[in-house]
């Protein structure tokens, strides 16, 4: 976060008015809201925009930022008694001196909206899993940052790690309850998210994958090995298979009491013509196979 220019993050000039800053923030908040746009890095951008706005919306913090830049939270002034607050939250210190549990809860609430994606709140956290974890079951460590009150009534953060045995077959959007693992012995609820997979797409309990095949496998039919998240399996490509045709592998989707299905979309890939021999072969096909795929289009 340090080194990021808050004005650049919001795309406004240093002389921008409070209204300009508000408008820029609203526009970017819509653009990068992780619930609206799932693209890579949107959550981080949204967080950066929120952090920048948190500072620039507040005249005092903005003045400190203008004067001290990235070190605005620790300006060179007489040290103050207090805690080492996490920089990202950007509390004004005056606020904290009157922090009690109730007020704190309200603050935390406000973070739930902006910080919830990458900074877990006390009783809830998000756990991003790879598809392989879901298939094999996995042991994951969840890092939590919890507010704690010391005997003097001051709040401070405590880092805390919880080891979670992820049950097999848990899906996107499901939740896990970990009894007594949250702040002050409360339950910890984990929201499960699935990291995008380079090959497999998950849709509820079903999984789809593109399955590249050769023209001769498509024409003649073949038994081929294909990848599934649970390992390779043999599948039968029917003769005269079409590109885009879908094969269903029952029960090879998300594991569970009622496992989902795996759908493989056939994708015919032509070998590129790189040699004279290959060219000759294609030319022979063109001559011998009378085939016009556009004849129904009247071309």
């Amino acid at each position: 976060m340090a080194g990021e220019d808050f004005y650049k993050v919001l795309g406004v000039a240093r002389t921008a008015s409070a209204d300009d800053i508000k408008r820029a923030y609203r526009k970017l908040a819509r653009k990068y809201h992780p619930d609206v746009h799932k693209g890579a890095g949107t959550a981080e951008k949204f967080q950066a925009v929120g952090n920048a706005y948190d500072v620039l919306r507040n005249p005092e913090k903005r003045a400190a930022y203008d004067a001290y830049g990235a070190d605005w939270e620790n300006p060179p002034r007489p040290a103050q008694e207090g805690q080492n607050w996490d920089g990202g939250f950007g509390f004004a210190r005056e606020d904290m001196s009157r922090a009690d549990a109730g007020v704190f809860r309200d603050f935390f609430d406000a973070f739930g909206s902006r910080g919830g994606f990458s900074r877990p709140s006390p009783q809830q956290a998000r756990l991003a899993l790879d598809l392989e974890d879901v298939f094999a079951g996995a042991r994951k460590i969840v890092g939590l940052r919890m507010p704690e009150m010391d005997p003097q009534g001051r709040m401070h953060w405590r880092d805390h790690k919880v080891v979670v045995n992820v049950p097999k077959g848990i899906g996107e959007g499901q939740h896990l309850r970990l009894k007594g693992q949250g702040a002050e012995g409360a339950d910890l609820i984990l929201e499960i998210a699935l990291n995008p997979h380079p090959i497999f797409r998950v849709d509820g309990r079903d999984i789809s994958v593109d399955l590249p095949i050769t023209p001769w496998e498509a024409a003649l039919g073949a038994r081929i090995a294909m990848p599934t998240p649970g390992g390779k399996v043999q599948v039968k490509v029917p003769p005269n298979a079409r590109s885009g045709q879908r094969l269903r592998l029952k029960g090879r989707g998300m594991p569970g009491a009622v496992p989902g299905d795996l759908y493989a979309s056939l994708l015919i890939v032509n070998p590129p013509v790189k040699t004279a021999k290959a060219r000759e072969f294609y030319e022979r096909m063109a001559g011998e196979l009378k085939f016009d795929p556009r004849k129904d289009q009247g071309a």
Partner: peptide, 13 residues
């Protein structure tokens, strides 16, 4: 580090 035992983990229906 605290270990959440398997029996303490519950999938919320």
């Amino acid at each position: 580090m605290r270990l959440a035992n398997r029996e303490h983990i519950e999938v919320i229906e």
